[in-house]
Design a protein around this nucleic acid. Structure first.
Lengths: 250, 250
DNA sequence: CGAGGCCTTGACGCTACTCAAGGCGCGTGG
DNA sequence: CCACGCGCCTTGAGTAGCGTCAAGGCCTCG
């Protein structure tokens, strides 16, 4: 299903994720347990599936490096991106709901993953309750993100939606220390991905991005996006849709 | 914050929720623990808040009886309903993400709740790992529902959205054994709630419901909705938006 | 009997979609 | 080395789905 390569194992104590807020405060015993829980590492290549929609999977994953999307596809090929997955995100908990995945996960870049066998999941709760608690926390945090995307799709207009998503990337990259000088971001996504995430058409995303560029808040050069004015972008992203509709930005 | 009444405690072994799939297979030890975990029961009256947006709460809840909505409000009063909460749903896990609730929860009917103090949450993971596992499961299941709502808001047209939500209610009530003869449902919600859940305007919901009624799949009488043709309704709810746009139903 | 909540309908306009065409950059192969 | 295809971005024209505004009806409750 997934063409992938087994690489060398990174010991958890050297894991690049250990600097993230979620993963601090782990003691030696916990790290040791996670070592035994972990069954390996794999790399999934850009464009390939980590989970296929509707297919059962025996593994859970943590993203060590790279970007992915979680999405659902309608029968005509239209799809909705549910959220973007970045290093530190945990994948596969929804497998416990219906066993078969109701969403697909696809790599946007080459993605390096830490693999955990599903069958050992319960032993984690038994051996280290605090890790079980962390998993609940991760599930809630992801739901929190999806909540935000739902508000955006349901109640914001196109320019607000794009501002919202850019701001989301901005905040996440900041958290990962992956934001470059001057608010420059390297986003491995196309305008089609914006459309699929925001419930817009590709054409309308393109036209709206032009408008947004003309406000001076952001600039686009290929896959690089620079946020020049976080404050105004935030105001726009959270703004009340009706007000904006009445007073166009241009 | 919440005007409410403390009632008599139902022992967990007599809890009305015990027949639900989530709550079967609990042994005596687990039930006994949940008894000690539980700090009481409250009833929140129709229209009142169980959680206020942005406000910290020391409690987690399980819904014993009644309907509620989880929602976020924009500063102008526009709101997005994230999902509907019915008996057996668990509330408050997102408190672990930011402590203050990023969403509000409001009672649609009088709601009877089982109360758990937040501070004891971790002890549940320690004492009964399988209950901790269940909480992760409940969080994932709720996310699964929100995922569906996001797909609906992002990629379905108005008639599909309404069909989708009706079908969702149909399935949930079926699961709760609350579906009446002939597919009749008692929905304690207004057309404004449909609008807020689906990202539509009140007026458009009204007009679309008329169209849907005219197909004969469903009928509306006040707060009672009867589903006459589940198959066609399902086909409509899951259908590809573009096709439908091309061939109107009427 | 009046007020307020909810539903209903019509008129009108705008946001966002569809269709269509073309440009640019890049990789590939003749 | 250039032609070609392909992926992605861009722009214009026309349209329709949905939103807004406005007005009115029905029912319940005080």
């Amino acid at each position: 299903m997934v063409r992938s390569n087994f690489n060398g194992r990174t010991p958890c104590r050297e894991c690049p994720l250990r600097t993230l807020p979620v993963f601090v405060n782990k003691n030696a015993g916990q790290l040791e347990f996670v070592e035994t829980f972990k069954s390996g590492e794999i790399t999934v290549r850009e464009g390939e599936a980590i989970y296929l929609e509707g297919v059962d999977s025996p593994n859970l994953y943590t993203i060590l490096d790279g970007w992915a999307i979680r999405h659902r596809t309608l029968s005509n090929g239209q799809r909705q991106i549910l959220n973007f997955l970045l290093p530190g995100d945990f994948l596969g908990l929804q497998g416990s709901v219906s066993r078969a995945m109701e969403h697909g996960v696809e790599a946007l870049t080459n993605v390096r993953l830490c693999v955990f066998p599903y069958e050992k999941l319960f032993s984690l709760y038994v051996a280290h309750p605090s890790l079980g608690y962390d998993l609940t926390w991760l599930a809630s945090r992801e739901e929190f993100v999806v909540d935000g995307n739902l508000v955006t799709a349901g109640r914001r207009n196109s320019i607000e939606r794009i501002a919202y998503l850019l701001l989301h990337f901005y905040e996440r990259l900041e958290e990962l220390n992956a934001l470059r000088q001057g608010g420059r971001m390297d986003l491995p996504i196309t305008q089609q991905h914006f459309a699929d995430a925001l419930g817009l058409s590709l054409v309308h995303v393109n036209k709206t991005m032009r408008k947004l560029r003309q406000t001076g808040m952001v600039s686009f050069e290929g896959r690089f996006v620079t946020v020049h004015d976080v404050k105004r972008l935030t105001a726009l992203a959270r703004a009340d849709a009706p007000q904006l509709r009445r007073r166009p930005l241009i």
